[in-house]
Structures are given as C-alpha cells and as structure tokens.
Design a protein around this nucleic acid. Structure first.
Lengths: 334, 334
DNA sequence: CTCCGGACAACAAACGTTTTAATCGCGACG
DNA sequence: CGTCGCGATTAAAACGTTTGTTGTCCGGAG
C-alpha cells in the first residue's frame, strides 16, 4: 500500500531525486553508468511516476481530451481509433468524453479536461457556440476541431466536405429516377445535418427541381432507434417519399428496418441512402448505399495537428484540412 | 494564459485559501454568507480547480479507468455507457483504455491508469494473468472485473454466464436439425471464447452427440472482417458445416456477408447464430439469431461495486455477480 | 603546479491543493 | 466578570515531481 516515490528510488540507488527525474525525462543528461543503475532500481522497486505531481510541477500533462457526439456510432469509434494510435505513438494518453449530443454533458466533459490540465482537446462540437472553446484556449489548452470546418483561421480543423457529400447522395437518388424526396436528419444544431441538407438542396436545384420539394424529417437523435421511429411516422402519416436520404447510416439502418417491417420494399418501393459508410452498412438486410468518409484518417490527422501545435507553439501554422467524401453504391438505391 | 488559482480566489474574496478549499469540498463547514461570496468570486474569475494538485495532496483522483478489449464492438460501447452513467452520477470521470486484444496495449493502459492514480479500475481482461491486477491492488487501486468471473473471492466481479449462453446457442442449432456443427471463435486466451465453447460442447453431449464433432475455427480477431475471412476459408476448404455458432455478433455478421457473397443461403444451407445481440444483429441481411446479454446493466453494476469499494473500503463486501443470458431467435437459424 | 572548463550530480525552490491544528470572536454560563 | 465552549476561519505543513542553480570532481592546457 505504501507507494514508492522518486525519493525511495534515489535513496536506494544512491543518487539524488533530481537525478532520478533526469533519468526519466532527459536520459541524455545523465551518465550511462548511473542511468543504468537507476533504471534497474526503478524496476526493482516497481516505481511508477506520479502523473499528478509531474503535471503539477511541469504545468501540463501528457494527455489529450477527445470529445465526441456519440461513441456508440461506429463513425466516431473509427475516428477515436485514429486519435488513439497517433497519441500513443507520441506518448500521450487519451481521455475520451462522450457528449451524447447533450450540451450539458459536453460542457461537463470539457470541465473535466480543464481540471485534468490536458495538453490539448480534440472536439466534434455538438453545436455552433465557439465560446467554450475560447475559454479553453485562454487557459493555454490547444483545440482542434474534428469533422467540423474552422470558422476562423486562428485554429486547426479537420473536416470532410458535407455539402459535397449531401449533393452526391441526392444527385444519385435523382439519377435513379426519384420522384418525391425526403431528408431524414438529426437535431438542427448539428452542423453536419445542416451541411448535408444544403448539399441535397443544391443537387435538387442543379437537376432543375425545386429544393423546397425536399421533405425534411427531423429526429431528436441520430440513432437506429430514431430511424425506425421515423419510418413508422412516415408510414403512419402516409407521407412516405420515393427516395430517402438519411443524415447518417444509423438512421438509415433503422429506417430500413422500419420500412421492411411495414412491408415496404427497398429499393423497389423506396430508394434509401445513408452517410458514413460504417462497417455494418454493407451487411444489412439490403446492403446500404452510403457516402464514405476517411474516418480513421480524420482522427489521425487531427491528432497530428494538435500535437504539433502543443509541441511547437512558436512555429506551428494553423491548418484547415478538408477531405472529400466518396459515394459507395450498393443495393438500397435504384 | 495566466491560470487562476485558489489563492487568487481567496485574495479576491478576502478569505484564506483553506476556506476556498472548504467551499469546494465540504461546503457545510463554511458559513452561508462567506460560501456565497466565495462561490460568486469563483465564477467571476473563472476559476477551475487544478485536478493534479488536488490528486497529489488527496492521494487519489476522482477518475476511474475502464479497460476494454475492443471499443469498436457495440457490446463494449454499451458497457461503457453504463459505466459512464454511474460514474458521472457520482462525480467521477472515466478514462477509457482500449486494448484491441493486445496484451502490450492493455499493459500500457494500466500503466497510464496507475500514473494517473485513478481511484479504481474496471477491466475486461484480455487474458488470464491476474498478476498485473494484483500489482494495481498493491498500489491501493480497487479493481473490478467486467464480463469476467472472479477466480478468487477477494475481489468483485460482474459477468454473464457464458457456458450457459454457449449451451443455449448450440442446443438451439441442434433442435433445428443441425448435422455438422462449427464454432467460429477468437483468440483462445479470451475467456469468453473458451466458456462459450465449453457450453457448446455440453449441449452436444446432452444431445447425445460427440463434442469432438464440433469443428473449431479460430480467428485472430473477433471482428466482422475476421468473420468474413472465416467464411471464405471454410468455403475454399470445402469444410462448411450445416450450422455455425459464432463467438460474437461481429464474427457472425462478417460470416453472414461472406456466406451470402459465395451464394450460400442462410438459413436454408447453413444455420447461423451469433452472440451479444448487438443492435445491428436485427438489421442484417438475414436477421441474426443471437444470445443477448444485459450489457448496459453489466457496466452499471460493475461501476457501482467499484465505487462502493472505493468509498467504503472498510465495510465493503466483495461480490461476484453472474447474470444469465437470453436466446433471441430470428431468421438466421432453422 | 595551478587554473580552467566540462561533465555530472546535488540542492532547494517551486507547482496548487488539502487538511490538521491552532486561533479568533462571541455569547452563555457559572 | 472571567471562563468555557463552540462555530468559523486561518496558518502552515505536507503531497511527489521538475528544474535552474550551485557544487564537485576530473583531466588537460598553460
């Protein structure tokens, strides 16, 4: 139970605590002979550095915070995988915060990050208010936006063009001969939902259709359950369009389930397209046409930018990176 | 950039640092008038407690570590949701570690937990070595096993009976008239894989069949990709059985995809059953028969036990809780 | 033989909080 | 009127590191 400190190691190895610290943090500053002796003493005593003490003195920790909207969504687990790989390559640990789309939870997570004095924060914001992020920056915590374009140039951001993606999706539905069109989406505060809608409208306009024809169905969450609910609502109301564009694959898969259960055939009766191309999209009852994003890469690049900013605050140049999505056509669309 | 400390708040509010600390940690000890004054000063200055300093002095943090085998598996995201809900109800933050089935990564995550002086650790161990966990306990860090029964009675553990589950699955396949049977599994060091196999063998024996008839297919990972690979292997080798029990739903969904792509009909040619009943199981091409576990509950209960042990080290009674699984029959089995 | 410089290592002062013991003010009680 | 007791507050000593400064010991140059 008695925890072994750097002093214990120092005493046992016959050196000063400062030297042990140097062995840990700047091994090149200490003679090989003593370094080896200290290292073996560390192993012998099972010493583990007290991260908090280290953080306290050094002024910053070796952790980064990652705040996502829904860790149950494979899109975000893929992003998180990219983040974690880069972070651990560079000796950082990742603290994961899941906002579940709730602003309150997001704020609580950011507070935890601030208390832990994380080195930096990666965040897919759940709404458009930049205030909280400036608060972090004011504390010397770097922030990189993930899957969200920067509204200003004094920050890094990594995103995928959602307007293009939405446009691709609806263009594809129109090519398939869609008459009436629906857009099934999540809370309007989520930027991705807005941008994909904008793209959808552009595609309609480009095809000579009135964008106002697009029936918008807004659900409180972007989950499979919500998608199924949307299907039931549309069917009950008798407003089911020819072709449906869902703002993400979870909604689309739920929608698919709901449609099939009600005897609606996909794609014969209704064309269906999702977004994200999660792994399960290709395994579903009717394999899902979707818009693919470079998800893992998103996480990797964002983390590289973040750590670069942390480690070279002087020379770091902010970057706004925008990837392009791909259309993956499968069975669910005509 | 200058960070505001408890001293700044104290000076501004005209009290001592100790009083500010009391306002933060034992508000009942301080007179209402001063408490209100201090609280408003805290807001005014935007003070955020330095978690590391607090941890250092107090000897432990307000965080728990959660180490899982594969955060990409919806089973674990559900568990994590249960953990997070309870933890945040009680004012704890969760540090998530993903071992990806690699022992090395798991050890690195545990090291991070130890450095951060987490209050306790929830872990689904990736193999059977209890040594690392004793090391944590030796440091005064409580450990609760998740989805893993305790081998000893001096610890808490929460699990679901995998032997029963495996037995249910195979009994169901046999009832469906399965001739030859296969078990598609992950790395043998994973206990769940072993137990489910044991259950499968028991069910065969109970039906008067020789357990050695069970064809075991071992894959290096328990992912959809691995499942699809397994399907391709079985078909190439011409050893495809009548009925397949997959050790989890990801394997089963991948298997399903592989079978259908090769023109094998499910369930007419092959019966297929998975394990976990993840959300996607019911949305797949052929909806998947599976064994359901109380996943979210698993995370909740484990966390409650952990925090109880942390907060009442004296009176805490170790518990080993074993839930029972349910069979959910869908289209993929005859 | 002295002096200088370089390479290591020791020393000691922080970092921001918690917590115990000590202090203060004040009304009540003897 | 003195003292006691009590609640509210303060003062100061930790907690385990990191880090800039100081010190020591060498070998080699002058």
């Amino acid at each position: 139970m008695t925890t072994v400190s750097i002093k214990d190691v120092a005493a046992r190895a016959g050196v000063s605590p400062g030297t042990v610290s140097n062995v840990l943090n700047r091994p090149e500053k200490v003679a090989d002979s003593t370094r080896i002796r200290v290292e073996s003493t560390i192993r012998e005593l099972g010493f583990v550095r007290h991260g908090s003490a280290s953080t306290l003195r050094a002024g910053h920790s070796r952790t980064v915070g990652l705040s996502v909207i829904d860790i149950g969504n494979p899109f975000f687990t893929d992003v998180a995988a990219g983040v974690e790989d880069v972070a651990s390559e560079r000796g950082y640990a990742v603290i994961l915060g899941n906002s579940s789309g709730s602003r309150m939870k997001e704020e609580r997570n950011l507070l935890v990050f601030a208390e832990q004095r994380v080195r930096g924060v990666l965040i897919t914001p759940s709404d458009e208010d930049p205030g909280r992020l400036d608060l972090l920056r004011g504390r010397g915590i770097c922030v990189v936006l993930v899957d969200h374009p920067a509204e200003r140039s004094d920050q890094c951001a990594v995103a995928v063009n959602d307007v293009t993606g939405g446009s691709m999706a609806v263009a594809h539905l129109l090519e398939g001969g869609a008459g009436s069109l629906g857009y099934v989406t999540g809370p309007p505060v989520i930027r991705q939902c807005q941008d994909r809608k904008r793209g959808a409208e552009q595609a309609m306009a480009a095809a000579g259709r009135d964008p106002r024809e697009l029936l918008e169905v807004t659900m409180p969450a972007m989950t499979a359950k919500a998608g199924q609910q949307a299907a039931e609502n549309l069917i009950a109301e008798g407003t089911l369009p020819d072709a449906l564009f869902c703002a993400n694959d979870l909604l689309a898969l739920g929608m698919l389930r709901g449609l099939l259960q009600a005897g609606v055939r996909v794609p014969q009766d209704v064309s269906l397209i999702g977004y994200d191309d999660i792994d399960f999209a290709s395994a579903s009852t009717v394999s899902l046409t979707s818009v693919r994003q470079p998800t893992y890469q998103l996480g990797r690049v964002a983390t590289e930018l973040l750590l670069d900013e942390c480690d070279n605050p002087g020379t770091h140049a902010h970057q706004q990176i925008m990837f392009q999505p791909d259309l993956v056509v499968r069975e669910s669309t005509r």
